[in-house]
Amino acid sequence: MPYITTDDGTEIFYKDWGSGQPVVFSHGWPLSSDAWDVEMKLAADNGFRAIAHDRRGHGRSTPTWYGNDMDTYAADLDALVRALDLRDIILVGHSTGGGEVVRFAARHGVGRVAKIATAGAVPPIMVKSETNPEGTPIEAFDAIRDAVLADRSQFFQDLSAQFFGTNRPGSTISQGQRDQFWRLGMQAGFAAVYDCVKQFSETDFTEDLRKIDVPMFIAHGGDDQIVPIAAAAEKSIKLVKDGTLKVYEGAPHGIAGSYQQELDKDLLEFWKS
């Protein structure tokens, strides 16, 4: 299997499908690159080179004790980009991965990144504060950490309902989709799962977003129960220079079902534009 090794010795697993302009995918917490398989095939089938990595501590990458922070995640992505000598990159990030690609683009991607697309992304900042009253209270993230410590397996099973919106009337998301969320989450290293909660909730991406000067497509589910749109996409679109916001009415956080079908059409159009 293909890996790169970072400066601190961490092995980062990645997939590399097809050829053409690179589309680089970054997954959400607590998943892996497998979460992007449908979109990677879409890209490779349409003349793009699809690349996705397992974030350190997730999937098949080293289950690190150190470096489970957003700056290191972005540096790891930079190491992958440089190892593969990628240029004219289209970045795609979901949830925590949306934060990762935004930080990478702002700090490492100048001259290499052509476009950015995010879906249900955590920027600018999730946690509630005096300056971010629309955010989620810190107690909610403390509860996630407590649940991870108490019974991670059951917590991931329960969380999949909110993630995919199966707790809403009329949901058509299968049990298999929920099981896949649990499976990928259980593959992640315990330290990374715990530490990443702080990273996706408390990292402030405001200045990163202001630095982005390439076209950015910001997608968000209108019924996202994990990353509420009012503190995320609706604020991010006001910070970027060349952004387009699309809200998928009634769509959840997880990319599946009819939401996935519509989003994938829009992603392909954005990649080709």
Rank of each mutant, 00 (worst) to 15 (best):
V122S: 06
M126Y: 00
Y14A: 04
A219H: 07
H253L: 13
M216W: 11
V113F: 05
K241E: 06
M126V: 15
K41D: 10
T5I: 14
R152W: 05
G135I: 10
M70D: 07
T166D: 13
S174E: 08
R49E: 14
D264V: 09
P22A: 05
R183S: 14
A231H: 03
R112Q: 14
T244S: 09
W182L: 15
Q199G: 03
V227R: 01
G120K: 10
V81R: 00
D85P: 00
A121Y: 01
D158K: 11
G222Q: 01
S33T: 02
M1S: 04
L86A: 10
K128F: 11
G109Q: 13
G59S: 02
H27N: 07
H253I: 12
D213E: 04
I212Q: 02
I229K: 08
E139Y: 02
S32T: 12
N46C: 01
S19A: 11
S32F: 00
L86S: 09
G243E: 00
D223F: 02
E11D: 14
G18N: 06
E202Y: 14
S201I: 11
A188N: 09
I255A: 00
L91A: 08
G221W: 03
V148R: 01
V110Q: 13
F48L: 09
A219F: 04
A75M: 07
Y14M: 05
P30C: 01
G250E: 14
G135L: 07
A79D: 09
I125D: 07
P169Q: 14
D142I: 11
H220P: 08
D16Y: 02
M186Y: 07
G250N: 09
G97L: 11
A161I: 12
